[in-house]
Every structure is written in C-alpha cells, then in structure tokens.
Nucleic acid binder design. Structure first.
Ligand code: ZN
Ligand code: ZN
Ligand code: ZN
Ligand code: ZN
Lengths: 136, 136
DNA sequence: ATCCACCCTGTAGTCACTACAGGGTCAAGA
DNA sequence: TCTTGACCCTGTAGTGACTACAGGGTGGAT
C-alpha cells in the first residue's frame, strides 16, 4: 500500500530536475533506491521527504556539504540543537559578508557611472578607472 | 631599453597567480607573448597594462566575457562610451538583484534562528522548517 | 657542482548542477 | 499488432574562473 514514485514524479514534487536527483544519488546525498524490473528507480515517501529537505536547505543557500551535516543532525532527535544553530549562524555571517562586499562594489560602480560625461571612449572616466596606474 | 617581465614578475605586479596569467592566455584574453631562448614568456609594458585592466575589472565583479568587451571598447577611442555605460549599468542591476536575494535569505534565516528554543533537535524549529510538508 | 627559485606543459579538481548522446521501457491509441 | 511518445537508463562533458598538482627544464648564485 506504500506510495511509490518514479524519478520524474519525485522531481515534479520537489521542483528538481531529474538529472539533479541522479546527481544527488551519485554524490551520496540520496540513498540508492531499489529498481523496478525495467531498471527504473523506485522511490518512496522517505526519499521524497529527504529530497524535500535537501531542496529547502538549498533554497536557503546552504552548500551541499552543510546540507549533508543538517541531514545528519536532523536524524539525531535526542541531541541538543546547538550545532544546528552554529551552522545556521555561520551561514548568516557568510551571507552578511557577501551582502557587504556587493554593496561596496555597487558603490564603486555607481560612482564610476556618475563621473561619465557620455563623450568619446578616449575621455571616458569608466575606462580610465580601469586603466592601471602604469608607474614606470 | 624596453622593460620586460617574466610571468612571475607580472603576477606580482598585478596580484595574479602565475597559473591565472597562463589561463588568461589560454582563453585568449592575453596575447601570446614572445618567448626567451629558454622558452620563458617575455612580457612588456603593454601586457602589464592589459593584465592590470583585466584584474581591476574582475575586482569590480565583471565576468570575463564582459571584461573582454570592455577591453575591446577601450581600444576604440573615437567611439562614444554609450556601450560602456550600458554594460556597467547592467552589471550594477545584476549586483542589486544579488544583494536583494541575499537580504531575503538573511531575513528568512534570522527568523529561523529567533524561533529556536535551544532544546532537543526533535523540537528544533530550524530543522522543522526544513522538513517539507508531506501532504499525503 | 649543486642548489634553489623560477619556468614549462598538460591534466584534473573545485561547486552544483546541466546538457547531451545513444540507447531501453512502458502504456495508450490506430 | 504496431507505433508513437513520454518517460527512463548510463556515461560523459560542459559551465566560470580559476587552482593544484605532476613531472620535468632553466638560470643565476655560491
Ligand atoms: Zn557614458
Ligand atoms: Zn563614459
Ligand atoms: Zn538552538
Ligand atoms: Zn533549535
């Protein structure tokens, strides 16, 4: 009576390309499912849940090795969630650093754009700013 | 009397790894330099300037194919800088989109962290939020 | 002569997929 | 029964922008 799924169905349910599901299996993130007589992969609800977890974590920007850790931790129900916190907090810090870097970049580029007088390339401040100071 | 540089010197002057300089040559971003009798690459000031330009553009986050366009444009001095503007503006827009995406992510994660009660993993809201709603 | 820092080529690894090529399976309709 | 067409299989290679070797050759100083 257990519900089963083909790889395509699993993909549709989790918004995952079929190739990606196979990729997750190849790198050991999803277990090898049993096969049908025609050699098709046969998934069940547990696979669906696990893939859903992976995809949600990916949406939240966790790299796959951190997803792996989160999966590992999620199975140890009696344990304290301290490590989960740490992992998520580190990820937030990383995201904040990336935001900061991009804001700096945006600032620099916007300043360049503001200086451009829309003339010939020979006088363009943007191109000029890219020319390195050739200290000779 | 023309100044020349080995690949290592060029790398030091532009903060570029030697492998990266060779990589730029391989993909046609830097011209093949002449070689010494011992088959060493021999660079001159023009190479140095071009590599400097590439590295500065990379620091500003331009992908290599846009760097290629910028290099192309920078050589056409009589032309209007309209295309330069467009390219840079598109890049800024892209950066702004990335900032926005990261801020959304940060918000989601921060909310998750705030909900965690620091108990057992079985009750952890973070893990819970990653479990997909298994709608039968 | 020997050392060491530097240079050479070529290949493979990174991350997280994605895109084929070249086949096999399965259910439905004519 | 035959044939479509949607789906599945494996294996390999491509993406961006490098980075890291392995296994050798070169050049200058001691
Ligand atoms: Zn302009
Ligand atoms: Zn301009
Ligand atoms: Zn906690
Ligand atoms: Zn918790």
């Amino acid at each position: 009576m257990m519900q089963t799924y083909t790889i395509g169905q699993l993909g549709r349910l989790t918004d995952t390309k079929v190739e990606t599901v196979r990729y997750y299996e190849r790198i050991g993130l999803l277990p090898h499912p049993p096969r049908s007589v025609g050699n098709y992969r046969v998934y069940d609800g547990a696979h669906l849940a696990r893939l859903g977890f992976i995809r949600r974590a990916r949406e939240l920007g966790f790299p796959l090795d951190q997803v792996r850790e989160l999966l590992e931790l999620s199975g140890q129900e009696a344990r304290s969630c301290e490590q989960v916190d740490e992992l998520v907090q580190a990820h937030v810090t990383d995201i904040e650093r990336r935001i900061h870097d991009l804001q700096t970049l945006r600032q620099e580029l916007t300043q360049l754009l503001a200086q451009c007088q829309h003339g010939k390339i020979a006088e363009c401040r943007i191109i000029e700013a890219l020319q390195p100071r050739v200290t000779g």
